[in-house]
Design a binder for these strands. Structure first.
Lengths: 181, 181
DNA sequence: AATTTTAGTTAGACAATCTAATTATATGTC
DNA sequence: GACATATAATTAGATTGTCTAACTAAAATT
């Protein structure tokens, strides 16, 4: 999360996207894709800003998006028995070792509990605790409103259109990265 | 960057967005904003995936998006004399100490050069080197195509519409975060 | 001349990831 | 049944990008 509060003389002017596009003309492979690349650049900037904004909204709760993501996954599969670190790694698109680190943090704060499987003692079952659920209850309203605030600048037509587009783009990119929620 | 190649039994099914929306109904403040929050969630997922995809595309060049960002900024202001770490921090929306770290890395590889100002000896001027420009030349084609590839699923109408929407959203979020490019 | 402000750096921290190695357990083969 | 292989989780150690707080040197102000 970025949070620049240094008060410095603003020496470099904002360029906007134009100079980037001009540079692109001279350094891109196929000029045909100009419109897509412009879009991609706008999206890159927005993605950066948006993730920062959500992080910022969550920070008062002392939890990050990654960890909330994991808790949310556990909550939504609460009925299901036998959620293992491996399956979480799969679903989150990260390595098992990374999940271990997240679980370590969450367990230390009693937000989740781990229990060794009796059927296969290599495996561990992960569950969200009452405290974990409580934290979700406290955090989620802010999370949803952080998600929606930025989008509320759009009118109804734009909202519907963007929804359609994002569903399409997400499907495409999940296929490319080979995973999804 | 995420890169899951562990081959695990896929135990947790993909849920898609529906269960998240149902949970939202019971945990959001104002139900009115449902459409925006749904959009925000889709955008959050897409932003995550998109940044991962761009990172992945850049990884063969041994440079990350943050560092490329900085180099690009230097390239686009190449004519301007006296670019300081402070002004870069301003423009990148990060702290001066963080810029020092990036410059350290870039300087070690001769991609940028630092020189003490003679007018005000507290200040340092940063310039991109020939090697830095070379790296940009090698990297940018891949960067632009990473930006555009994901977007190329869209037809012309969608592209134009999304462009308009992103300009609007970026303006809004930059105002909220208090910075921009 | 003394104080305060500024620019940059350093030191030390934390979060989220990774790979490689390790441990314990299960499974499969001869 | 014993040995080899595979699997699940963890540990160890690294990297990246960020932060805050303290420090140094120089400039500006009082």
């Amino acid at each position: 999360m970025k949070n620049n509060k240094d008060h410095c003389s603003e020496q470099l002017p904002k360029l906007g996207i134009q100079p980037y596009l001009e540079l692109m003309k001279t350094t891109a492979k196929h000029e045909s894709k100009g419109a897509s690349a412009r879009l991609g650049l706008l999206m890159l900037w927005f993605s950066d800003n948006y993730l920062d904004a959500v992080d910022l909204a969550l920070s008062p709760f002392g939890i990050t998006e990654s960890k909330l993501d994991l808790l949310l996954l556990l909550k939504l599969h609460e009925n299901r028995e036998g959620i293992t670190p491996s399956s979480l790694a799969d679903r989150l698109g990260i390595r098992r070792a990374s999940v271990t680190a997240l679980l370590e943090w969450l367990e230390k704060r009693d937000l989740i509990a781990r229990e060794q499987s009796k059927l296969d003692r290599r495996m561990v079952y992960v569950k969200i605790t009452a405290e974990g659920l409580e934290l979700l209850d406290k955090t989620l309203p802010t999370f949803w409103s952080a998600c929606s605030t930025v989008m509320s600048d759009l009118d109804q037509e734009e909202t519907m259109f963007l929804d359609k587009i994002l569903v399409k783009l997400n499907a495409g990119i999940e296929k490319k990265l080979g995973m999804g929620r």
